[in-house]
Amino acid sequence: MATSTNGKILATGGYNSSGYLNSTKLYDSSTELWTTTGSMSTTRCYLVATILSNGKVLVAGGYGISGVSNIAELYDPSAGLWTTTGSINTARYVHTGTVLTNGNVLIAGGYGSIGYLTGSQEYDSSTRIWTATGNMTTARYLHGASMLSSGVILVAGGAVVSGYTNTAKLYTS
């Protein structure tokens, strides 16, 4: 889920008794109503949704009928449409997405076809290109990531090979 710049909450993808989903709905808290909008091109769950500075929502990765996904899509709330954008370099799910001070998006960790991931990738919102960037020393998924007031990203906790961790790492772009 992501809260868009117009105050509506975007819910997309997921899984139910019918299987993996690509449907998208918007919730308007002022009317307490859900409306259906455009669907993603790919059915998946465990994706990450991040709101860009231009108001569009970037969805990356996830898990679907074909397994771990490297597909990234942009949702344009003014048109209600999805478009595919550059694919992430390493397919992953249960990862984090954080907008950086330069407007790019950092995705970190997660779980991929090779298991727990240490790597991170940066999405350039102007060129729509993904670039591999720093690795964490501890592979993790189901973790949290937040931008600190200094512009540094704090990645903390999560599941690791041996169970769970309370360690944290800092990322500077």
Rank of each mutant, 00 (worst) to 15 (best):
S30I: 09
K8H: 06
T90Q: 07
S4F: 01
T172N: 15
V48I: 13
T36L: 09
A72S: 15
S87E: 11
C45K: 05
W82G: 11
G62K: 04
S41F: 07
T133Q: 05
S18D: 14
G97L: 05
G19Q: 12
G61E: 12
M147D: 05
P77S: 08
D28P: 01
Y164P: 01
T118L: 06
I129A: 12
Y123I: 10
G55L: 07
A79H: 01
N166D: 14
V59I: 15
S162V: 10
T131D: 09
L117G: 04
K56S: 06
T37Q: 04
N104C: 05
W34L: 10
G119N: 15
T98V: 11
T172D: 14
Q121T: 07
M40D: 08
T133L: 06
G163R: 06
Y93N: 12
G67I: 12
S78V: 12
V99Y: 00
K56C: 08
L100C: 06
T85A: 13
G86S: 10
T36R: 08
A108C: 14
G110T: 13
A2I: 09
K25A: 14
L52C: 05
V161Y: 02
P77G: 11
S41N: 14
T96C: 06
W130T: 10
L47Q: 04
V152E: 14
A79K: 12
L26C: 03
S69E: 15
I114W: 02
G151A: 11
V155E: 07
A145D: 07
A168P: 01
Y123C: 10
Y20T: 09
N102P: 01
T83S: 15
T37W: 02
G61T: 07
V94E: 11
T101G: 05
L74T: 14
G64W: 04
A2W: 00
L74R: 04
Y75W: 05
N54P: 03
V160C: 03
S149D: 13
Y15K: 13
S23K: 06
G112P: 01
G119W: 02
I9P: 00
K169W: 04
G163Y: 04
R128H: 15
T84Y: 02
R92W: 04
V155P: 00
Y93W: 12
Y116A: 07
T131K: 11
G163S: 06
A145P: 02
S4T: 11
Y15M: 13
M40Y: 02
Y63S: 09
W82N: 13
V59M: 08
G80M: 12
L148N: 05
S23Y: 02
A60P: 01
S87Y: 08
V105R: 03
